[in-house]
């Protein structure tokens, strides 16, 4: 176990080192801090002096070590646009993204588990086939397109007049299919509750929750089909296993077998895969936040690209890299803990 722990953690450090080298290369290759600091009027000698003072003429390795040392102390430079430390800017935007991810994860958990289990227990039912068909189509729809369709349907609204409006039932059907266009599709709203630090939450006001609906549904839509398929596949495999057959032979009720015994072993791989998938969601938050102008780190990153705000881009890379590495390592460790059959030292057979 200790060997496994050491191996995984040292691997995490190695990956973080590679990320920091890439981030440093980007900073070094793209940004000329002098351009941002001094104007056109400064002479070449003065520039050279500033360059020397900033250590821009030092060998690469020295510059990298300085960059890494500062990064370890939580200093990733100042954003050109915000004129503040980049980590501060990220901390201000992070809560919005986290709330979006939490909202989407809740939707995924509460929908994928019942649907996946149902599709595994009754694979031939038409409802199962319907869900599996929908999830195949769902995988083919890019997340930003789902978001746009949701905006068109529920934010801008659709008026339906296919049915004769002079009859009662026609009018009722028209109203039923029309959407009011009530859900907000822009930002987080202004009714946010201040929790602590830079955390402004939209979870505690009606308006805040309303603003969360469309973005989290969009973000959930990309992962939901994957989870439904995963849970269904795992559950079907568990239902074939010996201990489930034994439980059936013993005469336990179907509900007890399915939900107490089978579900428990289904969720184990689902949770570990889920941990990794939630890390991957970070990439999709960039798309979702762009569509809804959601003021999280994804939108901030994209704006930093258009503004050529190199320090902010680099800081985002480092922070997102750290999030990925930490979640992946934790998931690996948890998996190693709960499932002792995992090859601990990772030796190839």
């Amino acid at each position: 176990m200790l060997a496994f722990l050491v191996q995984r953690i040292s691997q995490a450090f190695l990956v973080m080192f590679v990320i920091s080298v890439i981030a440093f290369a980007i900073q070094d290759g793209l940004g000329d801090p002098l351009q941002e600091m001094v104007g056109m009027s400064v002479s070449e000698e003065e520039r050279e002096a500033i360059r020397e003072e900033l250590g821009l003429n030092d060998p690469m390795v020295v510059q990298y070590l300085r960059f890494a040392g500062n990064a370890l102390q939580g200093d990733l430079g100042n954003s050109y646009f915000y004129s503040k430390p980049t980590l501060e800017v990220i901390a201000e935007h992070l809560p919005a993204t986290l709330e979006l991810v939490i909202g989407a994860s809740l939707i995924i958990v509460f929908l994928s588990v019942p649907i996946g289990v149902y599709a595994a227990i009754r694979p031939q039912a038409w409802l199962s086939k319907f869900f599996m068909g929908v999830s195949t189509v769902g995988i083919s729809i890019p997340v930003f397109l789902t978001a746009i369709v949701l905006i068109q349907l529920f934010s801008i609204g659709v008026t339906v007049n296919w049915f004769p409006s002079d009859t009662g039932w026609g009018q009722w059907l028209n109203d039923f299919f029309s959407t009011e266009g009530g859900l907000p599709s822009y930002g987080r709203g202004d009714e946010l509750t201040h929790l602590f630090g830079t955390w402004e939450s939209g979870f505690f006001t009606g308006a805040g929750l309303m603003h969360l609906v469309l973005p989290s549904v969009s973000l959930a839509s990309i992962m939901l089909p994957l989870f439904i398929r995963l849970i269904r596949a795992e559950m079907m495999e568990v239902l074939q296993s010996d201990y489930v057959r034994y439980a059936r032979a013993k005469g336990l009720s179907a509900g007890r077998i399915n939900f107490l015994h089978a579900l428990k072993n289904t969720m184990l791989p689902v949770i570990t895969v889920g941990g990794v998938q939630i890390g991957i969601m970070v990439a999709y938050t960039i798309l979702t936040e762009t569509v809804f102008q959601w003021p999280g780190v994804g939108l901030m990153f994209l704006e930093a690209i258009t503004r050529s705000d190199i320090p902010l881009i680099v800081a985002y890379l480092m922070v997102v890299g750290l999030i990925f590495v930490v979640t992946n390592t934790l998931v690996d460790l948890i998996y190693g803990l709960v499932n002792p059959t995992v090859k601990l030292t990772g030796k190839k057979a």
Binding site: I26, L30, V276, A283, Y284, L317, V320
Partner: peptide
């Protein structure tokens, strides 16, 4: 792969565009 291919593509694209 653990970084998700989309994330890698976005970052590489961003760096290319900036340079």
């Amino acid at each position: 792969l653990s970084f998700s291919t989309l994330m890698v593509a976005i970052i590489v694209g961003a760096v290319f565009k900036a340079s």
